[in-house]
Simulated scan of single mutants.
Amino acid sequence: MSSLRSELYQRIITLLVQARKDAGLTQVELGNRLGLRQTFVSKFELGERRLDVAEFLEICRAIGTDPHDMIRAAETNES
């Protein structure tokens, strides 16, 4: 099973995108907070690039969301 395409991974990405939007951040602004380009944000949001755990934690911090809550929310929707 590819973690890039797993249902749980997709739910996590969907939640990250929603958290970014809820925080009122554009991809450019999030990229700036991370010290990276907007394309980094775009690629993981579109599923073209897989996030590792450290990146996930950094993104959550940059957005201002709790990574534990994010994982719990993704697992709650698991079939």
Results as ranks from 00 to 15, higher is better:
M1H: 12
S2W: 05
S2A: 12
S2R: 08
S2H: 11
S3K: 09
L4H: 00
R5N: 12
R5M: 04
R5H: 13
R5I: 01
S6V: 03
S6A: 12
E7Q: 13
E7D: 14
L8Y: 05
Y9T: 00
Y9N: 02
Y9F: 07
Q10T: 09
R11M: 10
I12V: 15
I12F: 04
I12A: 03
I13R: 09
I13P: 01
L16Y: 04
V17W: 01
V17A: 07
Q18H: 12
A19G: 09
A19F: 04
R20L: 02
R20Q: 04
D22N: 15
D22W: 09
A23V: 03
G24R: 08
L25D: 03
L25F: 09
L25C: 10
L25T: 03
T26Q: 12
Q27L: 14
V28G: 05
V28W: 10
V28I: 12
V28F: 12
E29V: 11
E29S: 11
E29P: 07
L30E: 00
L30I: 13
G31H: 01
G31T: 07
N32F: 13
N32A: 15
N32P: 04
R33Q: 12
L34V: 13
G35A: 13
G35F: 09
G35Q: 11
G35D: 05
L36D: 04
L36K: 14
L36H: 08
R37A: 14
R37G: 12
Q38D: 06
Q38L: 09
Q38S: 10
T39V: 14
T39D: 10
T39Q: 14
T39M: 04
F40I: 02
K43A: 07
K43P: 00
F44Q: 02
F44P: 02
F44S: 03
F44N: 03
F44L: 08
E45Q: 10
L46H: 07
L46K: 12
L46E: 03
D52V: 10
V53E: 06
V53G: 07
V53R: 09
A54H: 11
A54M: 10
A54V: 13
E55W: 05
E55T: 05
E55Q: 15
E55L: 08
F56K: 00
L57K: 10
C60H: 08
R61T: 15
R61K: 15
R61C: 10
A62H: 02
A62K: 02
I63W: 02
G64F: 11
T65E: 08
T65N: 08
P67R: 03
P67D: 06
H68L: 11
H68D: 06
D69Q: 13
M70S: 03
I71Y: 04
R72A: 03
R72M: 05
A73I: 01
E75D: 10
E75K: 14
T76H: 13
T76Q: 10
N77E: 15
E78A: 11
